[in-house]
């Protein structure tokens, strides 16, 4: 048996090798919510890959969904980019969710949003990058470029489409449908087919966790 261990180790290193029994575990970062982590295929937000979010309408909860992640990253001093958000993110709400506002950068250039996202990912310094796709037709090539850029960074990258926009056929890690609630459906990526209703309880959970970490030395 002692020889089996290195072989196992060697096989694990090959991400391009498909083995029947188990899918290779992709690197991911915790979403900050236990039930969401359990529901996501990789056990968290995949790192260095693109996550596509398709909200049913504006304000379906796309930012709330990511707030625990952003809070964790900004508190560790990692910068976070919000690129071309459709409305103004309320600083009081972000602060309440635990986000360090001095690490948050909002880029207000809708027509250059994808370029800015690509640059941010390529730099490799951002905690995570969240970009709202500009209005109009979705260009498959620019999404592909974004995917390649995401691979160069360790950060999870999120692209949020507008209503009625169809994402191109792509190799993104995850595609999530989002409805007010927020309620999540997995449109791409193998995992549970059931929808996840997150509700509002998570925020309170986060607040409790923060209080605990604050009371610790």
């Amino acid at each position: 048996m002692p020889e089996a261990q290195p072989l196992q180790h060697l096989l694990d290193q090959r991400s391009d090798l498909w083995r029947g029994r188990r899918r290779p575990q992709a690197r991911c970062t915790g979403s900050g919510r236990a039930e969401l982590d359990a529901w996501l295929p990789d056990g968290g937000w995949p790192c260095g890959r693109l996550v596509e979010i398709l909200p049913a309408c504006l304000g379906s909860g796309e930012l709330d969904l990511l707030m625990p992640l952003l809070a964790e990253q900004t508190r560790q001093g990692q910068p976070v980019m919000l690129i071309a958000p459709p409305l103004v993110p309320c600083p009081q709400r972000l602060h309440r969710a635990g986000i360090a506002l001095d690490r948050l950068v909002v880029v207000r250039a809708p027509d250059q949003a994808l370029w800015a996202a690509e640059q941010s990912l390529k730099s490799g310094v951002c905690g995570s990058v969240l970009v709202w796709h500009p209005r109009g037709r979705v260009d498959a090539r620019s999404i592909r470029r974004l995917q390649l850029a995401a691979r160069e960074s360790d950060a999870p990258a999120f692209v949020c489409y507008r209503r009625h926009q169809q994402p191109p056929p792509s190799l993104s890690a995850l595609r999530l449908g989002l409805e007010p609630g927020p309620q999540l459906t997995l449109l791409r990526g193998d995992g549970p087919t059931r929808a996840l209703h997150l509700g509002r309880a998570n925020v309170i959970e986060l607040a409790v966790r923060r209080r605990q970490s604050a009371s610790a030395p």
């Binding site: 910068p79 103004v88 993110p89 600083p91 009081q92 972000l94 602060h95 506002l101 001095d102 948050l104 950068v105 909002v106 880029v107 207000r108 250039a109 250059q112 370029w115 800015a116 640059q119 941010s120 730099s123 310094v125 951002c126």
Partner: peptide, 22 residues
């Protein structure tokens, strides 16, 4: 990080990059 901010500012303009504060 400063290099990224400089690059974005150079193309998008000084006012396109901001933080938000209460």
């Amino acid at each position: 990080w400063p290099a990224l901010l400089d690059r974005l500012r150079a193309r998008l303009g000084e006012e396109a990059l901001s933080g938000i504060a209460p």
